[in-house]
Simulated assay, not measured.
Amino acid sequence: MPFDVAKMSGKWKFDSFSDNYPQVMDKMGVPSDRFEKVRATEFPLDISLQGNVMTSKLVYLGKTIENSLTMGEEGEENDTSGKKRMVTYTLEGDCLVSVYPDHDGKGLPVHTSRHFVDDDTIRMTIKAGDVEGWALIKRC
C-alpha cells in the first residue's frame, strides 16, 4: 500500500527508540539536552501532497516551521534547529523517504525512511553516515 502523506497530519509524540538512537542524534549534531526535550514534546503536524508538491507545517518547541518541496527534486528545507538544508523527498512503496546529501555542511549523508506501523504509529529509520537507528512516534 502506498504511503499516505496526508495521514501524517495530526499531533504526534515520540514513543520509543532504538538503544543507539541518541548516538544517531549526536552524529547529526543534535545536542543531548535538545534530544531530551524532543522526547517529551507533542508536536502538531499539518502535511499535504498536491500533485507532486508536499507542503508541511510543524509546530515544534514553540517554533512554526513551514516547507513546500517537490517530490523527487532536491530542495531547500527549513529544519527544527533553524537551519536550511538541501533534501530530496520521495515515495518509495509504503515509505516516505528523505535524503540529505550533506546534512551537517561537512558531507554527512542522512537517509530517513518513514512508514505506518498502524494508523496511529509511524516508524522512522534514520541512517546518519554509518550509524543507523529507529524511533516510533505515536498519534496523541
Rank of each mutant, 00 (worst) to 15 (best):
L69R: 00
T80E: 09
G105I: 03
W134P: 09
Y89F: 12
G82K: 13
V24C: 00
Q50I: 13
D118L: 07
E42K: 13
D104I: 01
D26N: 14
T80P: 10
V110W: 02
T41C: 08
S48A: 14
D104K: 00
T41W: 04
K57G: 07
D19R: 03
G82M: 01
D15Q: 12
Q50T: 06
G129M: 01
S18T: 06
D119G: 07
G105P: 10
S9P: 11
E77D: 02
F35I: 14
D19T: 09
D26A: 11
N78A: 13
P44G: 13
V99C: 12
E132R: 06
P22L: 00
G105A: 01
L69Y: 04
D15G: 08
F3Y: 08
V117W: 00
G51I: 10
L58D: 02
V117R: 05
W134D: 06
P22C: 08
W134A: 02
T70Y: 04
L91C: 08
R39E: 14
K138V: 13
Y60N: 08
M8V: 06
V5K: 01
S16W: 10
G107V: 05
L49R: 05
V38K: 15
M8T: 05
L91T: 06
A135H: 07
D130G: 11
L45S: 14
S48L: 03
N52A: 07
G72N: 04
H111Y: 12
F116T: 05
I47N: 00
P22T: 03
G72W: 06
E132P: 06
C140F: 15
E132N: 01
V5N: 02
L49H: 08
V30M: 15
S48D: 09
N52Q: 12
L91F: 07
K138S: 13
N20E: 09
N52P: 07
H103V: 06
S68W: 05
D19H: 05
D118W: 04
T125R: 10
D4I: 07
M54L: 00
G82V: 09
Q23E: 15
D94F: 04
K84Q: 03
R123N: 13
G75M: 04
K11T: 15
C140K: 15
V131I: 10
M124G: 14
N52K: 15
K106N: 13
